[in-house]
Computed example of a mutant assay.
Amino acid sequence: MGAAVEGLQHVYDAPGEVEIEIDGTTHRLTAFNGQAPGSLLVLFTDATSGVTTYAAGRSLSIDVPDPEGRILVDFNRASNLPCAYTDLATCPLPPAGNRLPVPVEAGEKTPTGPAHTARSVPGGK
């Protein structure tokens, strides 16, 4: 995967995909291993990326699937990656397939204020 720092690559295990339906359309997002055993992490961009949310994308932690393999995808828990707050972070960029064509208004927005300056993000929107 690419990174918010040009020329850097991140390597992660992707145990599978998360399938979600938004407005009648099915989307499949590559999921990575989360922090807790069995949990997942999804990196994504959407139609708000670079507008009201951080251009490089956001992350979404997903709890361990239930016995039937179902999960709860709660975009209210979408959070900015560390690179939204500092130029010293080397955040991974979401895979190309994890770009939702619809706006996800929930979750963290772009940080604002004097400590946050705009910068270009490789592959960002």
Rank of each mutant, 00 (worst) to 15 (best):
M1H: 10
E6A: 14
E6H: 10
G7P: 04
L8V: 14
L8G: 02
H10T: 04
Y12T: 00
D13P: 04
G16W: 07
G16K: 00
G16Y: 07
E19Y: 09
E21R: 10
E21S: 11
E21C: 00
I22E: 08
I22Y: 08
I22N: 05
D23F: 15
D23P: 12
T26V: 14
L29M: 12
T30C: 03
T30M: 09
N33G: 11
G34V: 07
Q35D: 13
Q35N: 08
G38R: 05
L40A: 08
L40S: 03
L43F: 15
L43I: 06
T45D: 09
D46N: 12
D46V: 05
A47S: 09
T48P: 01
G50T: 03
G50R: 13
G50C: 11
V51N: 05
T52A: 07
T53C: 06
T53V: 02
A56L: 05
A56M: 02
G57L: 05
R58N: 01
S59N: 01
L60D: 04
I62F: 08
D66W: 14
P67T: 15
E68V: 05
G69A: 09
R70G: 12
R70W: 15
D74F: 07
F75L: 12
F75N: 04
N76K: 12
A78E: 02
A78D: 04
L81M: 15
P82Y: 04
Y85E: 11
Y85T: 10
D87E: 00
P92E: 13
P92Y: 15
P92L: 09
P94C: 05
P95R: 00
G97Y: 00
G97A: 08
N98Q: 07
N98K: 08
L100T: 03
L100Y: 13
L100V: 08
P101I: 02
P101D: 07
V102A: 06
V104Y: 13
E105Y: 14
A106F: 15
E108D: 10
K109E: 02
K109N: 01
K109W: 00
T110F: 04
P111Q: 00
T112L: 12
T112E: 14
T112R: 07
T112F: 15
G113H: 11
P114N: 09
P114F: 15
A118P: 04
R119T: 02
S120Q: 11
P122K: 02
K125N: 11
K125D: 13
K125F: 14
